[in-house]
Amino acid sequence: MNPRSEPLGGAPLLQVEHLTMRFGGLVAIGDVSFEATDRKITAIIGPNGAGKTTVFNCLTGFYKPTEGRLTLNHPHKGPFLLERMEGFTIPQKADVARTFQNVRLFPAMSVLENLIIAQHNVLMRASGYTLWGLLGLKRFRQAEAGSVDLCRYWLDRVGLLDRADDDAGNLAYGDQRRLEIARAMCIRPVLLCLDEPAAGLNPRESAELNQLLLAIRDEHKIGILLIEHDMSVVMGISDYIVVLDYGRKIAEGVPEAIRNDPTVIKAYLGEAEEDELPPEVAADLARERASQAEG
């Protein structure tokens, strides 16, 4: 479905430079820089309160960063300076889509409607900003049929085709998460930002999610930015990892490097929840503790 053409090479898809976000006296993010590449999955990890979601909120226009520059090098439309754009124009013009940590669907609307709304701007133009739509012109009906086709494709991809006419609020939690991703893809993004997509999923659903994300990366050839706590997801599919702690970047690199990075391990050991550790680290830790107990 509409694979994007080859990137021009050179500049990375997203450049975050010296991003700082303060709320009053609180520094939520301090001078963070990283890059996300086209057709790669970049993960942002870190303990709770590290400022991951705040980075997303800055990227997608919900917060205005206090300082810093956020450049999106759109493969077709050229560069966008995201920090200067009004919130809703970021998905509209720069084609950056996102999902939310606590799923935000339109619960009283049907699954299909949820996806069609994501194509609002395309359909608005096709409906002549409502005028031609009111007159029932053929042009609009064709455009709508086209977007229903796109919805059908994505519903099929996330396995919700037969739930298309049910209220989104009635879906199971895992289905809602996948629907939210499908909805984000319906704006035809070049960068997809996922805020903890695996939270609350069971292992089977989580594995399916990995397949879906890899497929989006490889078939739709877009960049994915991922916040995740589930290390099996992060280590399994990320191409590159950025680690935040207390609003600062403490490490970045490929998964193997991050797995063995002492600063990262230390940051995570500060946390009580050990199940958030990479499995290898947790195993090491257990062994270490066992030897200490013996000695």
């Binding site: 997608t60 226009g61 919900f62 919130g87 809703f88 124009t89 970021i90 998905p91 509209q92 013009k93 889509a97 996102r98 939310f100 935000r104 669907l105 339109f106 619960p107 009283a108 609307m109 409607e113 069609i116 709304i117 994501a118 609002h120 701007n121 359909l123 608005m124 409906s127 900003y129 409502t130 739509g133 009111l134 609009f140 909805r183 984000a184 704006i187």
Partner: peptide
């Protein structure tokens, strides 16, 4: 008029805004 416009993009966007304005902004709706 209402029945018709409800089935147009702008009508759906109204309902979507009623449901969740933040989600609407993340989908590029003004």
């Amino acid at each position: 008029f209402t029945l018709r416009i409800r089935r147009l993009p702008v009508g759906r966007a109204w309902e979507a805004l009623r449901e969740d304005e933040i989600a609407c902004r993340s989908l590029g709706i003004n």
